[in-house]
Each structure stands twice: as structure tokens, then as C-alpha cells.
Nucleic acid binder design. Structure first.
Length: 255
DNA sequence: AAAACCTCCAACCGCCAAGCG
DNA sequence: TCGCTTGGCGGTTGGAGGTTT
């Protein structure tokens, strides 16, 4: 990829200039998204339809967030990736302002190298066994987690403020963890490690009724994806009652 | 100071599914 | 039904800039 090369059809490749950006932006603001094949012809851009679409989606579109991922964004990304796998567009759709490319890049540069390292050094996770999990929510839906501490007396309760934003989680011992108390990079680092640990955990987890999934077991994972697909359209991904989300993977009794 | 190395991320590529004639 | 076009996706590449030696 050279900065201003062109392909066999004479279409320009490589980095976009400010002028090209303006042409594309002006066009979409006037005519809207879609009909990407018309854009080169109508704007005079010497770019292929795919290049135009990608430039808009990943860079020019309004409300795109730039810069480092916040703690809650990483938290959500890890959680969603565990369910969805490398379905970056679905994951990005749940993280406001982030594109699929952003999520994919972040995963490939920050998470994946460490997941490989952890596969090689599994003992490194032992230090993280006792920390409870706190769920953080940037969007208008609720989510769930299992407890990392697997003692049978411990449950994680998720508390929402009603607007879909998580306030805190607490265990039965009454320990309360505010989101704001988890703001340091060190804790974020620990959380990533923990979720990577879970990523390779093939324990099956069940929730009463029609929701069932597992990690590392193909048929149940397919069912989980079905749930995701069903919930996707109305933004109710993981939007279940408090009873349903109070559970412990090691408990024999389901809520 | 400069070369080597590393990290990040924008952009490209190839594939697939849906829509349409 | 078939083939073509288009939109969309995930995987990969490679240049830019930063860091280390």
C-alpha cells in the first residue's frame, strides 16, 4: 500500500487527501449513504466504491470516537467478543462511536497478543482468582456476568439505574464496587486478563428457560448466537430480569 | 545520531449473501 | 434458476511514527 499508487483500472489507492474527504463528505451529506457505486462517477473521485464506503464508515462518518478505548468500552468489547467471536461489526454496533475496524484493530493489537501469551503461560492467571467482576454499561441495555470467584456462596448482582447504565454490582457479602472505583489502568489490565482467562474456560453456563450457551462447545454457542440475532434488532441484547441475571455458574440451582 | 525494531491503524483484499433482472 | 451487481464483512498488509539499541 503506497500513499498514492493506483490499481490496474487506474483507480487511486492509499491514503485519502483532505480534498477527497471533502468531496465524499459533501456528497453523502447531500445524497445520503448507499449507492456507493455512483459516488466515484458523481463526485469525480478516482476511487473504487469499496474505498469510498470504507472511508466514510471508518473515518468521515459523524460521531466517530477517536483515541484510546475507555475502560468501559474495553470491558464491553471483551464481554461481547466472548459471545460473538470475531464478529466485529456486531461488537462495534454495541460500542457507541467505535467502528468495526477500530474494534478489530484494538483487539488485534492489545488483546490478541496477550491471549496468545496467556495460552503459553496459564499460571499467570492464578493471581486473579479472587477478584469479583463488575459490569460496566455504556448503552441502553443490561448485561450479565458470571462471578470470577467461584465459591458457592457468592453471587453477583447487577444493578441498573433504569436508564440502562450500570451503577454497581455487589456480592452477597455486601461488598459494593462502584464503576468509578475501577478507573485505573492497572485494574483495566487485570480485567482484560480475567476475561482472557474466561475466554479459554469451557465451562457450560445455563440460564433458565430458552437461554443457554457455552464457551468452547459448538452447538450451544450456535444457540447463543441465535439469541444474539433475535435480540439484535430491538437493542435488547442481554436485557433480562434481575432474577435471570443473578446466578452463579457453580450453583446447581438456576434462578 | 542513526539504524533497527516495534506498534498502531488506515486501507486493501477476497469472500459471501442478498437483491434483481 | 442463473448470473450479475452491490453491500458488507473479517483477515491481512504495509506505511508512519515512536521507541530502543
Amino acid at each position: 500500500m503506497t500513499p498514492s499508487s493506483s490499481n490496474a483500472l487506474g483507480l487511486k489507492k492509499g491514503a485519502w487527501s483532505a480534498h477527497e474527504d471533502k468531496l465524499l463528505k459533501d456528497y453523502i451529506e447531500q445524497y445520503g449513504e448507499g449507492n456507493w457505486h455512483l459516488i466515484p462517477r458523481r463526485t469525480g473521485l478516482n476511487r473504487c466504491r469499496k474505498s469510498c464506503r470504507l472511508r466514510w464508515l471508518n473515518y468521515l462518518r459523524p460521531n466517530i470516537k477517536r483515541g484510546d478505548f475507555a475502560e468501559d468500552e474495553v470491558d464491553l468489547m471483551l464481554r461481547l467478543h466472548k459471545i460473538l467471536g470475531n464478529r466485529w461489526s456486531l461488537i462495534a454496533g454495541r460500542i457507541p462511536g467505535r467502528t468495526a475496524n477500530d474494534v478489530k484493530n484494538y483487539w488485534n493489537t492489545h488483546i490478541q497478543p496477550r491471549s496468545k501469551q496467556q495460552k503459553i503461560e496459564p499460571d499467570a492467571d492464578e493471581l486473579l482468582q479472587d477478584a469479583p467482576v463488575t459490569i460496566i454499561h455504556p448503552q441502553q441495555y443490561t448485561t450479565m456476568s458470571k462471578t470470577q470467584n467461584l465459591s458457592t456462596s457468592d453471587k453477583t448482582q447487577i444493578v441498573s439505574n433504569g436508564g440502562g447504565n450500570l451503577i454497581s454490582s455487589l456480592n452477597e457479602g455486601g461488598n459494593n464496587f462502584n464503576v468509578s472505583s475501577l478507573s485505573s489502568n492497572v485494574l483495566l489490565d487485570d480485567k482484560i486478563k480475567k476475561y482472557l482467562d474466561e475466554l479459554f474456560d469451557d465451562r457450560e453456563m445455563e440460564i433458565e428457560g430458552d437461554i443457554e450457551w457455552s464457551f468452547g462447545e459448538s452447538s450451544a454457542q450456535a444457540e447463543a448466537l441465535d439469541v444474539v440475532d433475535q435480540e439484535e434488532d430491538n437493542n435488547r441484547f442481554f436485557d433480562y430480569s434481575l432474577d435471570e441475571i443473578m446466578w452463579n455458574p457453580m450453583d446447581s440451582q438456576q434462578p
